[in-house]
Every structure is written in C-alpha cells, then in structure tokens.
Write a protein that binds this DNA or RNA. Structure first.
Length: 937
RNA sequence: GCCCCCGUAGCCCAACAGGCAGAGGCAGCCCCCUUAAAAGGGGUCGAGUGCCGGUUCGAAUCCGGUCGGGGGCACCA
C-alpha cells in the first residue's frame, strides 16, 4: 500500500480531495432538503415557529468584479458559526445574505464598455454566490435579495414615499403623516408662514409650505458638487480634506435643487438611543461625534441697526468677549461694513486697503480661492476688520467685528464672539491682531499656558464672579433669557442628508413634477418606477476644478421616460419625472426587513413577521437584528442612515422595532504582507521567501510592507485557493482560530496546515484511514476523560455564545489530543459523538459526515448539541500552590471539601514551606478557596 | 491638537471578575513511519507580560506616567 507514489496516502485519510467530496455532497444535501430554511409566522414562508428565535445578519457585500479574498468571509463565517450553534440548540435562526447591488463600479464599467450595469452586477453576484456556497454557509437561500431588483426597490421607493408623506412633530417628538399637518393648516390651528389663510394659497404655495416640513424635501441649500464625478455627494462622503471619498475629486459648495432627508429632526433620538444598543463603544463614539450635539446659548450682539447672532458653548465667558468674527460668507458682512476706517485704526486690521469694503472684498476672494486643505494646513490666523463695532450685551462694551476664515459659515450661526482668554483659536487671533485678552476663568496656580479651557472660578465677570463653569453657564443663560439677549440652545454638527445623486445605477425617485415644478408623489399602485434603458450611462462629468458647471444626470436624457402622461387625480396631464437617483445607501437602510419577508408583494414586510424576528424582546428593548456583523468602516454612514429610516417607520407604526440592529459587532481586518522590489514595484507575495530575516523574490532582495489585501499589491489570497488546497472546513477552522473575531491580524497561509492536521487527527480518531469504517468503541470512558469531555462542553458552550471561536477551537483540539493520547484503538462513542457535535458549528461538513458515519439519524444542523454534566465539572480534590511572600514554594493536594483552616494547616505542614517558615509565626495566611495559599512572613 | 483601542515565547494568540504566566496553532529541535518524501505520527524547547512608578499579602489584569503601534475627529465656537 505504501510503496507507490505520493498518491499513496491511505484511501480514507482526510485530505483536501476527500474534504472536497464530502463538502460538495453535504452542500447538495442541505440545498435539496432546505436545511437552513427558517419558517415565518405568516405568509409564503410560514411554518411552525418556535418562540425562541435568532436573527443574524452580515453587512451585505457590494459584488465587485474582483470577487472575495480571504479577508471578506471572516465575518460571514463568524455569523454562520453563531447561527449554527444556536440552531443546533433549538432556536429558529434566520441567516441569509443578499447583495448591495446598486453602485458606481458597475456603472463606470458600463460607461467604458456599454455593458448594462445589471448584467455586470448579475455576473458578479454569481461569482460571489459560487464563492460563498463553497464555504458551506447555512443561508436560507429563499431570502436572498438584491437591491437592484425592481421587486426590492419598489419597496425602497415605497419607504421613500412614507418619509415624503411625513413631517416631524417636535411637540410629540415623532414623525406624523403630513395629511395631519395639512389639516391643522386648513382648520386654522396652525398659521401659515405669511399669515394668509390656507385656502388663499395656491396649490403650489401650499405644497411649498408643506415641503418645508416634509421629512424628505427639496432644497436649494448649498450641496457638495463634484464636477469630476458629475454628481453631488453627501457630507458623509466628503473627506476631511474636502475631496470626494470616491475618486478623490475636489468638492465645491453649490446651491442646487436637491432632495434632502431631514435626519436632523432625529438628532437627539439618534444620540440618546445609542445608550440602549449593544454596540462597540468606538462606533457609538463615532456616531455621537458625527451628530455633534453641543449645549450652549445663542446670544445677540447689537451692531448699528441690526444684530449679530452667535452660538457659544461658553456663555459663562461673555465678559471676556473682546471682539467678534463673521465667516467670510456671512450675509451681515456687507450690511455692517463701515464706509471708512476709523481714524485710529490699527494697521494690522486693514491689510493696507483704502476702505473696509475693498479689504473685505480682497479677503473674501483670497478665502474662496483657498482650498479646504490650505485652510486646514495653514492655521495662521488671518482676517480683516469690518470697521464696525458691536455691543457686548453683558457690559455694553464696544467691540470690533472682524471677518476671518477660521469661522465657518456651516456651523452654528457663522459668527462667533471671541474670548481669547478661554479659547486658543481666539487667543491666536487676538495675539496676531493686538486685541485685548481678558481672563474670565481663573487658571490654576502655576498655569503657564495661553488660553485656559479648564474649570475654575469666574473672574472679571460681574455677577458671575466666583462661580464654577457649569454654574456660571446656567446663571448666564438665565440672565440672557430674562433680559432678552439670547437663550439656551443646542447645536448639532449633523446636517440633513443629501439624498439625490446624478447617476444612472440607483433607485429612481417615485416623484414627478407638474407644470409648476411642484413635486407630486406617485401613488403606491404605480410602483416600482423602473429604471429606463439608456444609451449613455454616464452623467456629464467635467474638469474636476470646473466649479461652475451644472449636473446633468443620465436619466434626463431618456426623454421618452422623463415625460409621462398620468392621471394623478386631476385628469390626464403631462408630468416630468425626477431624473436623479437615490444614493447607494438607500437599499441598505432597510434590508433586514426584507430578509424577513422577501417575497411579500403586498407589504414591504408583514407586521407579524417583523414583530417575530425584529420586535422588542422585553420592555425597553429597542428590537432589531440580534447580531449584526460587519466592518467598522460603516460606523457613521450606513448605520446612521439605517437607524434614521427605522425610527421614521417606527413612528409611523410600520414596524415595532425602534432600532435596526440591537447588537453590532465589528470584525477585524485580515491584512497581509506585500513586497516591493528595488524599483518600488510590487512582486507576487506568494513567491517571496524569507532567509535570515530578509525577504527575497527569486534572487532579488525585496522590501516587506504590511497592509490590506489588494490586487494592486499582488498579495491577494482567495478563499477558493484555500478551499481547493485544504477544504472549506479547514479554511473555516483556520480563520476562526486566528484570534478573536474583532482583532485585525496578518494572513499566514503556512499556518493553515495546523487546522488541517487537527481535522485529520480527529477524523483518524473516529475513522479507519484504510477502510473508511468507524473505529469508535463502546467502552465507557474513564473518569479523567469524562472530566476532560464535560469541561470542554461547558467551555465550548460559553465560547460559542460569546463569539470566542478561537478558544472554542482550542478546547476541541485539546480534547481531541486527549483522545489521541489515551485511545489509540479508537475513541469511545460518547466522546466521539459529543466532539462531532461540538465541531459542527465551525466545520459543518466534516461534522455531518462523521455524524452519519456514527449512525446519526439525519443532519446535525438542528442538533443535538451536548450538555455538560455538572458532576464532572467539580473536582474531588484540589491542588493548591503555596506561596511564601508571593512566591510559589510548594504544593499540596487536599479534598475539594476541605475547610479554609484545613487547607491552611496542610499548607503550613508542607515540607518546603515549613522549612521556610521555621519557628517564626506568619503575619498572615491568605487562603483563596480553590486557588492558592499565600503565607506572609 | 483632541478622543478611543492595543503592546504576553521567533510569529498568530490564551489566561472568568487581581490568585501557579500557557489553552491552541505555526515555526524550531528530537524521535518514529518511509527506498524516499510530507499537508504523516509521537515528543520537546520556549516569554515573566513595551518601560517606569503606585495600590495590594499577591498585578499581564487596577491606578498614574512614559514609549511604540493602530483608528476616529479636527479652526465645530
């Protein structure tokens, strides 16, 4: 048998080939028997549902052309193990995966090749499906969805209309149907903006009023226009240096008529409800930071006939406001600017210009030409005096008003009161311009910094003197409100969500415009509004720097589609369709609900099914997906938008869950080494060898880098290669044992063999490699083995439940090593069965195969899973290490039931310890039950 | 600049809630099987927890400082 070639491994050794056969066979079996179908309470997928359910979800992938590398499935396998563990323990588990199918790459490919994005995307989806099927993921494939399917985006459009037909009632603190607002106007319960009666307004005027309340509304406010992409993008899609996240093009602020989602109405709830979620602190912090709630006051500073409104978080420092600053774009700049400089003007304030007017114009021009990057990198304070003076309301002081670009139009009121004593930016400006600095909070003794931002007693502040910062703020706000100079207020960084894109490959808006240009919502019966075919998929793109260009979306050129004749209740009329598409985030804002009811054509999700899978599980619970795994890169965008939609639908009574994702878990990134040669060109990482700590590609010395896996770095390893070389179970086992799920770590192909060897050993303990027959025995395992077994069972339960797959795997290896060592003739049946059951969540195929070899009745997918017997978890006797002054000096073994005094006596009697203690009396003897004894001399 | 996370054998990682630093894997070393080979079998070696200080009978674990790595935000008033 052993004298032939390399093929001469025993016929039933668990090799990659055998693993592959087993895996394919079981995948087909699962498929054909619908093993992972999870029944719904009602509807097409209805079945008998256990009360105990679990909804596990992966952040669904955008199917890119490159397919998956080994980093992608980490989370997919993680959710699968979790799902399998709970399914085996009797829960009704919903786990599936769909595709975030709209997106720019397919559209760009279409622009280049003319291939319809749908075709590209469908092909890519097939690749993804092939790859994930090979991994043996237990998905309910009946629930697969793709956001580009009209059956799916019909409901995305439907939800858009629900939001469109709603407004936020601040008093009630929730969204309500817009018809109720309209009724309030019509009944005169609510005044129109200009005081006319509702009936006196034209239809278009009425609609314009309602537009200002709708949760999704048309706005002419400044948006981020990216000529290089030919589209606008949201604030969240603009990087810190003012460029587009996609394509890295310059972004320009332009006033364009666009759809906005009134996410700001939910700012408080989006922040406050974070406390109710089981999410990583890091993600919560990022969301809080993004929403940026700050408490403070609005204060009005009179200047000539008008007044400058400022927002400040430090009203307690008002007495130290020695000047004011307006953003260059602030509308009041022109109003208040003086015609001439005052006689004694500081030359630093004028930039040498003849008049304030010319100085301001020059400064504005210079500011507008500075890119955001320049403004950021160059923090030198610049500015120019307006020639005007404002009055500080607390003390009547006359303070100069400047224009400076360190104040941003986009935050607060675009104007500030400057308190150099308590704000470093103001300090810097004041120093550069020779402005007075008044401290209003006493810094601690020995403070040698500039602006002091800490807590302390108020000074130079009239009626605030002596108060701490918090108390002083309250007192000042009360004073401002009493005297009509301002009021306490809350400011947010969060802006409304720009919701239109000038692209082809996205959801069309279910909106048409009438002859007045008033938007009209299409009735539900006309959904979906399907994407028309076009000749040219590209929006008109421009020179990236051409700020003054206009968006021209591809749909606007589908003239037959744009112009429609419809009867929308006023007889047949011609309307124009909205030619924008929704942003890529729309489809992922609600997909968990469609997973629940993927084939329902009456509702986006049947209420009973929603309540069962996503509803609150206890009073105060937010509801939502039980476990949501994905990368931390979606911390703000997707997760904030999805929470917002969820809350609107909750307010409208469409869903019972207040939050989409009750528990969130971020998987770590699998990174990899990459190598560059002397020219800096990447070489194939798999061909690099290490010699004496140096790296070589052939004979050439190469340099090692560490980072993401990517085609351009030539360091991609695919799950396909790994499955071919080792089998899917080995690959799964390896990925899960590399470390905790949330830790990023380097990929190491050479380590995969460890997982392979484990499975081979386990297989060999149960199966004769020569004959394929089982070799389990019916002998009763000894006490030690039973203890090892039940300890493993208890530990593995806990590890699986807490996503600690690396330690669960280690415990299985440990147990298997015990079997190898103690049962060379084959594993005792009870141990073998439990081991296979415990292995199943991690390595489902080999577990199924072994289970059936052991005579298990059917698939292991729904259990059983072993339970630990308490009897074997408690020890009869315990070994105590004896420390003398904290160092281990000896050991004793005593019955587990021994009292502390008995343990103490035994410890002191121990030979080596007794020698050390000698005649002296120990100061203290500490007995930690079950752990150790420490004798302090 | 502000905020957050992480530093344990050559490498990836364990150590429940302060209690014997090691569960597991890779690599190394030794032995076995083999004409030979290894994705074969058995065994074995290996760090005092980045550094300094504190609390404690006892610190990888808690506290303060410091160094190194990673991430987020960034003229947000």
């Amino acid at each position: 048998m052993s004298d032939a070639t390399a093929e001469s491994a025993p016929s039933y050794r668990y090799t990659a080939e055998l693993a592959g056969q087993i895996e394919q066979r079981w995948q087909e079996h699962w498929d054909s028997t619908g093993t992972y179908h999870a029944p719904n309470p009602v509807g097409p997928l209805a079945g008998a549902v256990p009360e105990d359910k679990l909804f596990v979800q992966d952040m669904f992938p955008y199917p890119s052309g490159a397919g998956l590398h080994v980093g992608h499935p980490l989370g997919f396998i993680g959710t699968d193990v979790f799902a399998r563990y709970h399914r085996m323990n009797g829960r009704n588990v919903l786990h599936t995966m769909g595709f975030d199918a709209f997106g720019l790459p397919a559209e760009q490919y279409a622009v280049q090749t003319g291939q319809h994005p749908r075709k590209t995307t469908e092909d890519n989806i097939q690749t993804y499906l092939r790859q994930i099927r090979r991994l043996g993921l237990g998905h309910d494939e009946r629930r697969r969805i793709a956001t580009m399917d009209p059956d799916y985006y019909r409901w995305t459009q439907w939800i858009f209309l629900r939001i469109f037909h709603s407004w936020y009632d601040e008093k009630a603190g929730k969204a309500r149907p817009i018809t109720e607002l309209e009724a309030e106007f019509a009944q005169g319960k609510r005044a129109t903006p200009d005081g006319r009666g509702w009936c006196e307004l034209t239809h278009a005027e009425q609609q314009a009023v309602l537009n200002d309340y709708r949760l999704v509304y048309l706005s002419d406010a400044p948006v981020n226009w990216v000529p290089g992409l030919g589209t606008v993008v949201s604030n969240e899609e603009v990087t810190a240096d003012g460029r587009s996240e996609r394509g890295n093009f310059p972004v320009f602020r332009r006033n364009l008529r666009q759809w906005m989602m009134r996410i700001t109405a939910y700012a408080d709830r989006l922040i406050d409800d974070l406390d109710r979620l089981e999410w990583p602190d890091k993600v919560k912090a990022m969301q809080r930071n993004w929403i940026g709630r700050s408490h403070g006051a609005r204060v009005s500073f009179p200047v000539a006939d008008s007044a400058i409104e400022v927002f400040t978080t430090r009203p307690d420092t008002l007495f130290g406001a020695t000047y004011m600053v307006l953003a260059p774009e602030h509308p009041l700049v022109d109003t208040i600017a003086a015609a001439e400089w005052p006689d004694d003007v500081d030359p630093r304030w004028t930039t040498g210009a003849e008049t304030p007017g010319t100085a301001i114009a020059a400064y504005r021009r210079a500011a507008s030409m500075k890119s955001d990057l320049d403004r950021q990198e160059n923090k030198e304070k610049t500015g120019v005096f307006t020639g005007a003076y404002a009055t500080n309301p607390v003390n009547g002081a006359s303070i100069p008003v400047f224009v400076a670009d360190y104040v941003l139009m986009g935050y607060g009121t675009g104007a500030i009161m400057a308190v150099p004593g308590q704000d470093q930016r103001d300090w810097d400006f004041a120093t550069a311009f020779g402005l007075p600095i008044i401290r209003t909070v006493a810094p601690p003794e020995g403070f040698d910094g500039e602006a002091f931002t800490g807590d302390g007693a108020a000074v130079n502040s009239g009626f605030l003197d002596g108060l701490g910062v918090d108390e002083a703020k309250k007192t000042m706000i009360a004073w401002l409100e009493e005297n009509g100079h301002g009021n306490g207020t809350i400011q947010y960084k969060l802006r409304d969500w720009l919701f239109s894109r000038q692209r082809y490959w996205g959801e069309p808006f279910p909106i048409v415009y009438d002859e007045d240009g008033t938007p009209v919502a299409l009735p539900e019966s006309m959904l979906p509004v399907e994407l028309p075919d076009v000749d040219d998929y590209s929006p008109k793109t421009y020179d990236p720097e051409a700020a003054d260009t206009e968006p021209s979306p591809p749909l606007s050129r589908a003239t037959d589609w744009v112009e429609v004749e419809l009867d929308l209740g006023q007889g047949r009329k011609t309307y124009r369709r909205d030619t924008n598409t929704m942003p890529n985030w729309a489809g992922s804002c609600w997909y968990q609900m469609r997973y629940v009811d993927p084939t329902d054509d009456q509702r986006f999700c049947e209420p009973e099914n929603e309540r069962y899978w996503l509803g609150p599980q206890s009073p105060g619970d937010t509801g939502g997906v039980d476990l949501y795994i994905g990368g931390v890169e979606h911390a703000v965008l997707h997760l904030l938008y999805a929470r917002f939609w969820q809350k609107v639908l909750f307010d409208l009574g469409d869903v019972t869950a207040e939050e989409p994702y009750r528990r969130l878990y971020n998987q770590g990134m699998i990174q990899a080494y990459a190598y560059t040669d002397e020219r800096g060109v990447y070489v194939e990482a798999s061909e690099v060898v290490e010699r004496d700590g140096k790296y070589f590609h052939g004979d050439r010395r190469v340099r090692q880098e560490y980072g993401k896996m990517g085609k351009s770095l030539r360091n991609v390893v695919t799950p396909d290669e790994m499955c071919a070389a080792y089998g899917a179970d080995t690959f799964r086992m390896y990925e899960m044992s590399m470390g905790p799920m949330d830790v990023s770590r380097p990929w190491a192909t050479k380590d995969v063999v460890g997982a392979q060897r484990f499975l081979q050993r386990l297989w060999r303990n149960l199966v004769d490699e020569e004959t394929g027959e089982t070799r389990v025995t019916d002998t009763d395992p000894d006490e030690t083995t039973l203890r090892a077994l039940h300890k493993a069972i208890a530990g593995v339960h806990e590890d699986y439940a807490n996503l600690r797959y690396n330690t669960a795997g280690a415990k299985l290896i440990e147990l298997n090593n015990h079997v190898t060592k103690n049962f060379p003739g084959g594993a005792p049946r009870v141990v073998a069965e439990a081991m296979v059951q415990m292995l199943a969540p991690l390595c489902p195929h080999i577990a199924e195969e072994l289970w059936s070899k052991l005579g298990g009745p059917k698939s292991l997918a729904h259990g059983p899973f072993p339970k630990a017997d308490e009897r074997y978890l408690v020890e009869d006797s315990v070994e105590y290490p004896i420390q003398v002054n904290g160092k281990v000096r000896g050991r004793i073994t005593v019955p587990a039931a021994a009292s502390q005094d008995e343990v103490k006596a035994a410890a002191l009697a121990e030979e080596k310890v007794a020698a050390l203690v000698g005649d002296s009396t120990p100061k203290k003897v500490i007995v930690v039950p079950g752990r150790l004894v420490n004798i302090v001399l």
